[in-house]
């Protein structure tokens, strides 16, 4: 009895979790103009439309650009800061740590609004650059926290050995610290890319002519339901899952015991 209940509950919740995704993907293959039952497919016409849509493809490129560059900046800044705070005694280090983590606790809407106000005053127009700056703000705490937590004594000893052998600080960072932190660095970078790629409200308020993918999809929603939106949504999902599986099989693979 308990067993049946257990599996029934699991099936129910998994059904709930997969329902919208299943519907999304299924009706991306719809042949008619509305992504609602009855299913009239399968057809690939909406995928063809997506791939032929200049604005959508431009937005996709913009998103990729903003995500990769802002994540790289966040990772670099986070890595240097984590290195400094984990290895050296600095005055006010508790305060600095608090400041670096702080943006994590504030809603994106508020971060976006603040940046919008400041950028308005200094005359920085809404653009991909403005959005990228905002994305570094939200991803820096994440990169810093992950790398700070990952810096252990093992690296410390290796770094000291390299220094004793006469390596400069830059070489220690590049040849010892960074390679030893490969997995957490990859995790931080990948998470940052994901967050930036999917971020809506900052990009919505801080872009105007060149927009990112979530903003472009948002404007597609204004013209109502369309299998085309299903198609782009499914494509993004497919790409994310593929990247995830690839990472799971390579970098994050647990060593066999």
């Amino acid at each position: 009895m308990g067993r049946i209940l257990t599996w029934a509950y699991m099936a129910l919740i998994y059904g709930f979790i997969f329902l919208p995704v299943g519907v999304l993907v299924l009706f991306s293959f719809q042949d008619s103009r509305l992504p609602v039952p009855p299913f009239t497919g399968p057809s690939l016409r909406w995928y063809a439309q997506v791939l032929g849509d200049r604005d959508l493809m431009a937005a996709l490129g913009n998103s990729l650009l903003v995500a990769l560059i802002s994540s790289a900046v966040a990772l670099l800044l986070g890595f240097l800061a984590a290195h400094a705070l984990a290895r050296y005694r600095l005055p006010g280090s508790v305060l600095i740590r608090g400041l670096l983590i702080a943006p994590m606790t504030v809603s994106y809407l508020i971060i976006a609004l603040g940046l919008m106000t400041v950028f308005n005053q200094i005359g920085l127009r809404p653009s991909l650059l403005a959005t990228g700056i905002g994305h570094v703000v939200i991803n820096l705490p994440l990169c810093f926290a992950i790398l700070y937590a990952a810096m252990g004594d093992q690296q410390k000893n290796a770094e000291r050995a390299a220094r004793d052998l006469g390596a400069s600080e830059a070489r220690v960072l590049w040849h010892i610290s960074a390679p030893m932190l490969m997995a957490p660095m990859a995790a931080a970078f990948f998470l940052s890319v994901t967050f930036s790629w999917d971020e809506f409200i900052i990009a919505f308020l801080l872009t105007r002519f060149d927009v990112t993918l979530p903003v472009e999809i948002w404007s597609m929603l204004r013209s109502g339901l369309s299998p085309k939106t299903n198609a782009i949504g499914s494509l993004v999902f497919l790409v994310s899952i593929s990247v995830l599986i690839l990472l799971e099989l390579t970098i994050f693979r647990k060593p066999r015991q």
């Binding site: 400041l99 603040g114 106000t117």
Partner: peptide, 20 residues
């Protein structure tokens, strides 16, 4: 060490604390 932490700190001060 201060040099290492400065870029991140300046970023947070300029684009988070100041806007707030």
């Amino acid at each position: 060490a201060a040099g290492f932490v400065a870029p991140a700190l300046i970023w947070v001060l300029a684009f988070f604390v100041l806007p707030f």
